[in-house]
Design a protein around this nucleic acid. Structure first.
Lengths: 226, 226
DNA sequence: CGCATAGTTCGATGCTAATCGAAGCATTCT
DNA sequence: AGAATGCTTCGATTAGCATCGAACTATGCG
């Protein structure tokens, strides 16, 4: 069975821990400098540079140079989707926990997925948007719905400004904890910024957990679930 | 970004050529003996055995022993889906073909993915089901629609029998060739069995391609697209 | 039971590739 | 222009792992 794409080559690129960490850090569609990615991977800049060169050759990354800063991002959504599917298998195959702890519940409710909200609240938010035609879904694609622009303007998020960004406005990001999507893209990031600005929730130190206060949770749900 | 599933571990397992070849050989949903997989991988049986042990530990394979024969298969459809997504990236990132060959078109139209149909026809079929309320989609979940049971009974597929299976009835499986979903799960498998039983299409030897005959294609489209 | 076959385990071999210090190149700032 | 910063390239080191011959275990057959 030698016909077909060379999956070993691609998988091997993801199979190194440093490279995997860098790819994971880029899963939201954003971009980071080589130095930042070195920090994410926990290796020196020179090592990161070597890895990034390999990922570029493999077609997994995109590169935008701005002066001396070189911003690497994932090549496309297909790469991100592949990473998500690997995550799904890794999660299913991972060590079984004896009993879920409090951290698990917190992470399940809400956590940061790079720069946008993930977890149960994020999934419910996207579902609510779709139910109310704020966003629409066509198969695997998400777009702004009829009442979306006015909805977001009313809460202080300006869709037209976000559209100017190089990254997609809306993107479905598979939430591996529940095998459902939450909202990524520049809109997802803006929503997270709003949550933090309103102090509805805070980031936990050294963790991706996002912890809602009781009043914050109510305000979040009132705003986004109606 | 150290929290979350260990994708490097899983990807590393796929990243060895011998192991990749074995996994690919199993993507048709069947099971092969260790000796057969050694042939697929082009290594000795002892090497294959070592690799298979790693894949088992990683949770990527299932094993059924029959006497001295040990049949290895993919652990589940999720693993197959992951391999599909890696293939999609590898295909896109691979050396550009000068011109698409007949094999490419065939694979794009229809191919086996684990145990259900994939490709353009499969995507169109799922879209047709959703459009006609035979199946419904709620975010990432697909369920039987109002007119589903009677539709499938009319073509000889009994949903109640399939529901008794341990696996989900319907599941969206991302089709890497077009970045849209096709139908997996026990229903997807039953539909593929029907296609083969009706001789609308046949499996190509040593390939995952599913080749429709002209009359078979018309019957398939009449049955599933209306 | 002896032989054949399927498959696993052991251990030695040698190749590969991640790693980082050093050096070099490119860009920015004062 | 010189210093600072971001990043790439070079080269040496060494840990890791795929590999297969040999040995062993398990199953099937006459």
């Amino acid at each position: 069975m030698r016909n077909g794409p060379d999956i070993a080559r691609i998988a091997n690129l993801v199979g190194d821990p440093a490279r995997a960490n860098m790819l994971t850090a880029l899963m939201d569609g954003g971009a980071l400098t080589a130095s930042e990615l070195a920090l994410e991977a926990g290796v020196t800049v020179q090592t990161a540079s070597s890895h990034l060169s390999k990922l570029m050759e493999g077609g997994l990354l995109s590169l935008a140079a701005q002066g001396r800063h070189r911003y690497y991002g994932l090549a496309n959504a297909q790469v991100a989707s592949m990473l998500e599917s690997i995550m799904g298998v890794a999660e299913a195959a991972g060590p079984q926990r004896v009993r879920p702890g409090p951290r698990d519940a917190t992470m399940r409710e809400a956590r940061i997925c790079y720069d946008h909200l993930a977890g149960d609240q994020a999934v419910a938010m996207l579902d609510g948007f779709l139910a109310r035609n704020i966003l629409t879904r066509d198969g695997d694609r998400i777009a702004m719905g009829e009442v979306g622009p006015s909805f977001f303007r009313a809460i202080g998020i300006e869709p037209d400004t976000l559209k100017k960004s190089r990254r997609p406005l809306c993107r479905a990001c598979l939430d591996w904890s529940v095998r459902r999507s939450h909202l990524a893209g520049s809109l997802g990031a803006a929503i997270f910024d709003k949550i933090v600005a309103e102090r509805w929730a805070r980031r936990e130190a050294n963790s991706r957990a996002v912890v809602f206060s009781p009043t914050g949770r109510r305000a979040f749900e009132k705003t986004f679930f109606g």
